[in-house]
Design a protein around this nucleic acid. Structure first.
Length: 428
RNA sequence: GUGGGUGUAGCUCAAGCGGUUAGAGCACUGGGUUGUGGCCCCAGAGGCUGCCGGUUCAAGUCCGGUCACUCACCCCA
């Protein structure tokens, strides 16, 4: 095969699939808007430095997963591996703290990571991303998670669990890191090679290890959540209390670690057991130092991302989606009727009725068959006889009934029939 | 980046130890006597068997490489 293929890990989303995407996006937009979030769109390419500084130099994302390349002037650029950094950059660059409406932002779009693809993981993948700046109150932490839960609920997704944790602040984390390193040092001989490496690079990561032996050892390890400072503990308590009041269920997972360096205090993940190895459908957390670190005002921030492919994969496992199809087919017999039919179809479309038509002068039988396969509700038939009398045959494909209507009455009549549906189903 | 599995029609899959023209179902197109869909019947179209090389009289089949897909590791959405 010499035809050109899409590049590895990057997928076409075909018309048959697009309904899922539109439904997810629409649901997200409506819900986020109701919580006061406004959409922002930022470039998919940024200076490499932005991601290195925000996500962390030694994270996997920055070290080995970025699409990074020099532009024509030799400046290092990168396709964005996540959205937060770009949104924060835009917030700072345009001084959006001066805009009272811009405290809460959301974005929907593709991210890029150069990993080996597998189920639920692709090199170009889409995220719905929400960020809120300038608010440190635990009320917001709880609200963000509550919103995430509502979103999944509104889509009808079941079988997911919200995990929450607190990573504490800079100070408690540093203290804890030393504590944990010490612990790992004592047990180094027992650990798997990966964990022996992690011990230096990112000791917190050892909690993610899937080797049973490591897990057994770590069962006795000091727990970050238990050694955070008073202020952080209070914050976390408050977050839990608000979640309870919102009746949003959660599991406290003291071992949950997230892969981006900028997180502090509240972190959370929505987990599923139905996606093979990819168990995170969405996740996020608080990042109070990030704006300052990127040269902006010292404002707190919190946000999360939802993986759209994973979400849709899960939805498809438990739901089926009705195919969207045109409502009306205009069938013609003979050359003179074709022109009239062509114009009639345009008229119907201008009224917002989805209309299909034969362009090739096929036989009536074949037009009928096609109309049936398209799943239309009504077929309008016009031949020379109808033309001369100024009439149209209107066939209801479901009831197999056929009525004769004056040509000029057809469009208003069909509009009448479909009007109820249009108002019933909202935008559809 | 590392490992396993798989590559035959648009889709799901067949082709005993290598053997002559690579098949089927679904989908697609046309037809089954005047201008009417689904079911049924008939016909048609659709393939350089992922690609390159090797072994052989002969390769979809065996070998090597490569690419792609897939699952898993690492890690994440």
């Amino acid at each position: 095969m010499q035809s050109i293929q899409a590049i590895r890990g990057m997928n076409d989303i075909l018309p048959d699939q697009i309904g899922w995407w539109q439904r997810v996006e629409q649901t997200a937009r409506e819900l986020l808007s109701s919580f006061g979030y406004r959409e922002i769109r930022t470039p998919v390419i940024e200076k490499l430095d932005l991601f290195a500084r925000s996500i962390g130099e030694s994270t996997d994302i920055v070290e080995k997963e970025m699409y990074a390349f020099p532009d024509r002037k030799g400046e290092m650029l990168a396709l964005r591996p996540e959205a937060t950094a770009s949104i924060v950059r835009a917030f700072i660059q345009h001084n959006l703290q001066a805009d009272p409406l811009a405290k809460k932002l959301y974005a929907i779009g593709p991210m890029f990571r150069h990993e080996r693809p597998q189920k639920g993981r692709y090199r170009q993948f889409y995220q719905i991303d929400a960020e809120a700046f300038g608010i440190d109150d635990p009320m917001l932490d709880a609200e963000v998670m509550h919103m995430l839960r509502l979103f999944l609920e509104r889509l009808g997704l079941t079988g997911v669990v919200l995990h929450i944790n607190s990573l504490g602040c800079q100070e408690c984390r540093q203290d804890y890191r030393d504590l944990l390193k010490e612990f790992l040092e004592k047990n180094v001989a027992e650990l798997c090679p990966d964990c022996q490496r992690r011990r230096h690079t990112n000791p917190l990561r050892t909690f993610d290890c899937k080797v049973e032996r490591c897990q057994a050892i770590l069962a006795d390890a000091p727990v970050l959540l238990h050694s955070i400072c008073g202020a952080c503990a209070d914050h976390f308590e408050s977050v839990k209390s608000y979640l309870d009041q919102l009746k949003t269920a959660y599991v406290i997972n003291p071992r949950m670690v997230r892969g981006l360096d900028y997180y502090m205090r509240t972190t959370f993940e929505v987990i599923t057991d139905r996606l093979g190895a990819q168990n995170a459908v969405g996740g996020g957390g608080r990042y109070n130092g990030l704006l300052r670190d990127l040269g902006g005002p010292d404002l707190p921030g919190i946000g999360f991302a939802i993986g759209m492919e994973r979400l849709i994969l899960l939805l498809q496992q438990e739901q089926s989606e009705a195919q969207r199809c045109p409502k009306i087919f205009v069938a013609s017999l003979g050359a003179s009727a074709r022109d009239t039919c062509f114009l009639l179809a345009q008229q119907l479309r201008s009224l917002g009725l989805e209309t299909e038509i034969d362009y090739e002068g096929a036989s009536l039988k074949s037009q009928m068959r096609r109309a049936d396969r398209l799943g239309v509700r009504h077929v309008l038939i016009m031949g020379d006889e109808e033309i001369s009398r100024g009439e149209v045959q209107c066939r209801d494909m479901m009831n197999k009934t056929q009525t004769v209507l004056p040509l000029e009455a057809v469009a208003p009549r069909l509009q009448e029939i479909y009007k109820e549906e249009i108002t019933e189903n909202g935008s559809r």
